[in-house]
Amino acid sequence: MFPFNFEWIWDISHLVFMGGLWYALGIIGTGMGYCIIKTISDTAQGKGAHHDEHH
């Protein structure tokens, strides 16, 4: 899974497979990170504090 695992080989299979994995995880992580940071910022600015139920 990581280059420091002893069975890791720097070959095309590992690069493609693990590349795909880390790419997907990267997008998911960045996406969620963005959402959380923006939410913290929005909440700090007082957004959503007095909304009613028909948003």
Binding site: G31, C35, I36, K38, T39, D42, K47, G48
Partner: peptide, 29 residues
């Protein structure tokens, strides 16, 4: 209805809806 009254959750829901296309695309992949 109750959770949505909490500003943080309300904002998080809104922001996640905004970025949902990215997650959906990753999900499809």
């Amino acid at each position: 209805r109750k959770l949505d009254k909490i500003p943080f959750f309300h904002n998080l829901t809104h922001n996640m809806h905004e970025t949902m296309a990215v997650f959906a695309a990753t999900g499809a992949f």
